[in-house]
Amino acid sequence: MRVPNSELLTLVDVTKRFGTTQALSPTSLSIERGSFVSIVGPSGCGKSTLFNILSGLLLPDGGEVAVGGKSVVGSTGHAGYMLQKDLLVPWRTVLGNITLGAALTGRVTEEDRRQATSFATRYGLGDFLRHYPGSLSGGMRQRVALMRTLALNTELLLLDEPFGALDAQTRFEMQQWLLSVWRDSQRTVLFITHDVDEAVFLSDRVLVMSPRPGRIVDDVEVAITRPRTLATLTETDFTTIKARILRQLHRDAESLS
């Protein structure tokens, strides 16, 4: 179903201001269908504001947001949005949490349960369907949260630092896992992170953002072949791209001090 070179998400001159702070200066952007794009930048650079606008939680002051050619300004439900906190509902089982979207919008059908069960089985949580989230580890909880996002069946996934709270070991496993999920499901992923290694390792493209006013200052293509492995992290291509992004981030830090 993947249509090459077609755009899924288009932003034209999207702006947002909170009081006197320009949270997001006019931003235009287009994201290719099926691609994996990361956004890196220091705190307060407008990453989360951008995501809140994309998901429809926040109304932009101006500009246009379109998904699949249709304007989605101020409406929700067109994108799967996953936050750093897993936000699993403690009183629902793993299965109940994966199907939460269906339960909140309509009825949980047999098909929803079947899909949730197959997600859980494929991604190593098949034996935990009837478990409450309280008994799961951090990595497992995060996986359930991502499955809940996948179960919405939206083409666009917005992941806001989903692995930020995990230890390095689990984090690397989760990154590998996310890539396999992305490959299987052929979704389009926008991924926020603080971690430059993570951004380069996962993405086709990395957007670098900078605060005051929040804006995109660099757009870096990551032309490294997939599948990527541990060895990728030390390749020259990888380190060159990483150095370029770090320079951008560092320039901001210097100009502030």
């Binding site: 429809g56 939680l57 439900g77 949005y81 936050l83 909140l104 919008t105």
Partner: peptide, 8 residues
């Protein structure tokens, strides 16, 4: 989260 999921 419920809002993001499109809840009524």
């Amino acid at each position: 989260l419920a809002r993001v999921l499109g809840a009524r």
